[in-house]
Amino acid sequence: MKSPGLRLFAFAYLIFLYAPIVLLPIFAFNSGTIIAFPLKGFTLHWFDQLFSNATLGQALRNSLIIAVSTAIFATTLGIFAARASTRYRFPGKPGIMGLIMLPLVLPEIIVAVSLLIVLLGIGVPLSIFTVILGHVLAATPYAIAVLNAAFSSLDKSLEEAAYDLGETKWSTFRLITLPLVLPGIVSSMLMAFTISLDEFIIAFFLAGEQVTLPTYIFSQLRFPKQIPMIMALGTCLVIASIVLLTIAEYARRRGIAKTGAKDTGGFL
């Protein structure tokens, strides 16, 4: 066995990564009202409380609407930008792409605050819609990163071949480009969806009276009484994201198998 030290470190690191997550179900099923050891006993009460919470239901609905819209719009904008950056050369490209990718490193609070000022300035009422505006901005760079990989692994001569064989530019896109980058599009949508579902700061500033899942969670974290329910919610979210990620990974591998391409790495 090679590098036992590194291997040991890697497993310790995994424990560090997973410790907070493993604790979630432990406290979610613990009948004690205080999040502390020793554990009291087994209960499903917190899940009961979770599923009968009307505000939470509203928050989930809002978040899903926002996340689905973000996934669609960010991926659409991502397709245009990824296509432009992988296929065309034009003056000013690094600057243009730099601006589009800027939210990747820009602290979200800056995005949130600046958007808030503009929206208030032109008198747009804060709502789910304004959250979508912000989330699309924040998720598009991630979508582009995923789609860039998909588009740049696409051989340009495939499109030329279809065009050469009599197809138009649009039918070439539909018949050749789209099917081949579809796994990338699916990944991009899943990523944008997940980012939006989890995003707190922008929603915190731009949602107005509306509540989203993260803003609801944040508001509840100050009430110790509510924490066990949040643990139950966290458990559900972890399971949901593992299921989603597994589907995404499966779709990606199937896409690779279908076109005989080389497996070039993980979901991210």
Binding site: L14, L17, Y18, A19, P20, I21, L23, L24, F27, I35, T194, D198, F200, L213, P214, I217, F218, L221, I230, L233, G234, L237, V238, S241, I242, L244, L245, E249, G265, G266, F267, L268
Partner: peptide, 22 residues
């Protein structure tokens, strides 16, 4: 890579809060 990224995909707020628990 999958193992490394899974925790990242779960609620940021809850992950942060879990450190308070720890």
């Amino acid at each position: 890579l999958f193992l490394i990224t899974i925790p990242f995909w779960t609620s940021y707020l809850i992950r942060v809060f879990q450190w308070k628990v720890i």
